[in-house]
């Protein structure tokens, strides 16, 4: 099947999509956006988090055809090396990155959290990011990064 949708505000057309594919697979293998990561394919880890029409979702659980005509924002759409998003900068500055596999999903989830709630409490951060597993950091420096990003935004 064919798909037309926007990714990071750019129109995107892909052909030969298998109907059983996930949005994650489309982004990674057909659009060439490798930033969204595949770690569980069942919505348990959050590594593939993207914004779909403005809502944070696990892209592994969105069928390819469901995004036709819709708007997707991936970690690449938040900022790049020359122009880091404040959340990305905070993750670097707070030492919240180790292996980095969870980082893109956490960056998107954090950006979504801070858009909804610019001054979250620690408890709110923990609950909002509960669906993003990290195996390296024990989350402490991730929590620091979220607090830092929130403070910078204020």
């Amino acid at each position: 099947m064919q798909l037309q949708f926007t990714v990071n505000e750019r129109p995107c057309h892909v052909d030969d999509v298998w109907e059983g594919e996930s949005l994650l697979f489309v982004l990674r293998e057909r659009v060439g956006l490798w930033g969204s990561k595949n770690a569980c394919e069942q919505g348990e880890c959050g590594s593939c988090t993207v914004l779909l029409d403005g809502a944070a979702v696990c892209s592994c659980l969105v069928a390819a055809g469901q995004v036709d005509g819709r708007h997707v924002v991936t970690v690449e759409g938040l900022g790049d090396r020359s122009d880091l998003h404040p959340v990305q900068q905070a993750f670097v500055d707070a030492g919240a990155v180790q292996c980095g596999f969870c980082t893109p999903g956490l960056v998107v989830a954090t950006a979504d959290l801070l858009r909804r709630n610019p001054s979250p409490s620690d408890a709110e951060i923990r609950e909002a990011l509960a669906g993003n597993l990290c195996r390296c950091t024990g989350y402490a420096q991730i929590l620091d990064a979220v607090r830092l990003a929130a403070a910078v935004a204020r």
Partner: peptide, 22 residues
Amino acid sequence: AGGTDVMVDLNFDRRRPAMLVD
């Protein structure tokens, strides 16, 4: 609909339905 069950089955190769209705 939300895909939170159906897509897991597709991703895990548990089901290959002939048609998906969104």
